[in-house]
Each structure stands twice: as C-alpha cells, then as structure tokens.
Write a protein that binds this DNA or RNA. Sequence first.
DNA 1: TATTGTTATACTCTATAACTATA
DNA 2: TATAGTTATAGAGTATAACAATA
Lengths: 166, 166
Amino acid sequence: MMNVNEPERDTAGRYTGNAFLLAQIGAHAAAGFASRIAGLDLTPAQAGLLRLVAWQPGQSQQVLARQIRTPPSRLVLLVDHLEERGLIERRRNPDDRRHHALYLTAAGGQFLKSRLGPIGAAHEDDICAALTPAEREQLRGLLSRIAAQQGLIPGVHPGYQQLKAP
Amino acid sequence: MMNVNEPERDTAGRYTGNAFLLAQIGAHAAAGFASRIAGLDLTPAQAGLLRLVAWQPGQSQQVLARQIRTPPSRLVLLVDHLEERGLIERRRNPDDRRHHALYLTAAGGQFLKSRLGPIGAAHEDDICAALTPAEREQLRGLLSRIAAQQGLIPGVHPGYQQLKAP
DNA sequence: TATTGTTATACTCTATAACTATA
DNA sequence: TATAGTTATAGAGTATAACAATA
C-alpha cells in the first residue's frame, strides 16, 4: 500500500491525488458553467443566489449573505441585478420595515425552469461524458459523502471567499 | 431512470448533480489548500508554479505562461517571489539571451520535499476522510477519466482564468 | 521587424467602513 | 443604542498595453 505521508504522483512525478483532481476539475467545471451562463448575462454568483431565493423564499438579505458567506454589501449588488431584470423582488416586511424579504417573481420561476435548468443539465452531461450512467451515480455517492463530511451545505456554493489562516 | 434533461435535485429541490458537487467540493478543497500553505507564505499559484518548474526544469517563462494559461506579465511576479525566496532561479540562455530558463534550486527541492509534500498529503487525507482506501482509489479512477476526457493537463492547475464566451 | 521578458497603466472585483432608516 | 440595508471608499488582484533588450 502507498505511503500515506507521500502524495500520489504519476510516473512523471506530477501530483494526481484526489484533492488536486477535485480542485482542478472543479475549477474547470465552474469555468465551463460560467461560460455557459454568460450568454444569459448571469454570473455564477447571481445564478446561485437566484436558486437560493427559489429554495428559500422570503429570507432577509442578512440571512442569505451569511449562508453564502459574503458581506451584505456585496449581496446588495447581486440582488440589484436580479431585481432589475425582474427575476426576483424585494418586499418590505410590514412588521419590521428594516427587512427586505426576497421572493422569486413569476418571470424568475419561468427563467429558472426554461433557461437555467436546461443549461445546467447540458453542463452536467458534458462534465460526465466520460462516465456511464452507473458510474455517474457512483461518483455522486462518493462526492455526496465527502461534501457531507466536510460540512458543505447541499446546494449552496459559497463564492470563492478567501479563508483566513487560523 | 432520471430524465436527462432535468438536473439532479434532492428532496428540497436543491441542485446536487456531479458538476455542482465537483465545483463545490473543488472550491472547498482549493480554499483549504490555500489556507494550509498560507503559513508558508505561498499562494496556490506560486505553489503550482514551483511544482511545474520542478517537473519541467529549464523551460522559458513564455512556455510556462502558456501552460498555465496566464499572461506573461503575471508570471513575472510569481517568478519574482519564488526567486527572491531562493526556491527557483532564472538562468539566461547563452544561445538566445532573450530567454530566461527557470530551474529549481537545491533549497527549492528541499522545500518541495520537506514542506510542501507533507502539507499536500495531510490535505489529501483530510479531503478524503469520509472514504475508505478502496473508495479513494475508486474516486481517483473516476476523476482521472473525467480529467482526461475534458482535456485537462495532468498536474497542471490553470489559475482560475475567466474563459471568454465563444 | 519579431520575440522575450519587464514595467506601467487601467480595470474589475471585493471588502471595510461610513451612512440612512427603522426599531 | 442596535440592526438591516445601502452607499462610498479603498485595496488587492489581474489583464492590457507600452517598453527595453535581443534576435
């Protein structure tokens, strides 16, 4: 068995451990997705927020900002863009008028279903082109367990915020 | 079987396809690695370049810049930092004095082996904590095939450059 | 004139901090 | 006084373009 103190390397000495492959393929997948949705005038962060609002309608901006680990000031700009396009809307909470609850509009729901959905499916199919359906399921199982063990929130992609060294 | 035109979602409607999981876990792994090597005063890009020079000694900056898809002007700063620390060195090519060939120094080789290596191994072990040794091998097989099919260069992590829409 | 490496400039993105309004 | 959201400012990081040396 391989020495656990040495990272895996191929015959040319290049590092090919799972962590490296995940980072490499993950960046590739993220870049590919960004490229696909650029035609929709959306950044990955905006698309992620749109999905988040769809899953959790009525949340305040503060709550959402904490979930994706981004400063509230950045969230404002993301929300601005989506609201200007009519995909989501801010509604003032009558009980506490400081809060802006976010909701998906009808157009936003339609956009999510007819535009973003197919793009996500095509992207998924492209990334997994090398694998059989059974292998894709197998991969999902392994990745899901890693994500759960690492404490990642399902469906929530934190913007690449830099982590302070402890 | 699942409709291939619909992305995979969990019971709460959250997107959990392989492409999303790869991007999510990949960003998490990259951030974790960045955090680990921050104590060594290295960025991921600098660490990647250091490894690249170790694998391919004597290459010109132009060639290396093309490989990691970064502008030559950015490479200059990365090389500057590594050279100031004595980990790599520029040598003028006597045949064509325009070229600066890059080589690992003895200190650089030592650093790679005794500092970066153990950190990479510990990181690998952390990311794969949820999996058995057999499952880690299984994952490596699946990921390697995806990387090959997607045309990713083994061991080369392109800095997160933005891809222009086609 | 073309190419390598470098430097200079400008731009984008993000975070920090000040500000307004509500409570 | 404290909190939600917003706006303003500043900083880091990166790319584009100008530049100097060499061919």
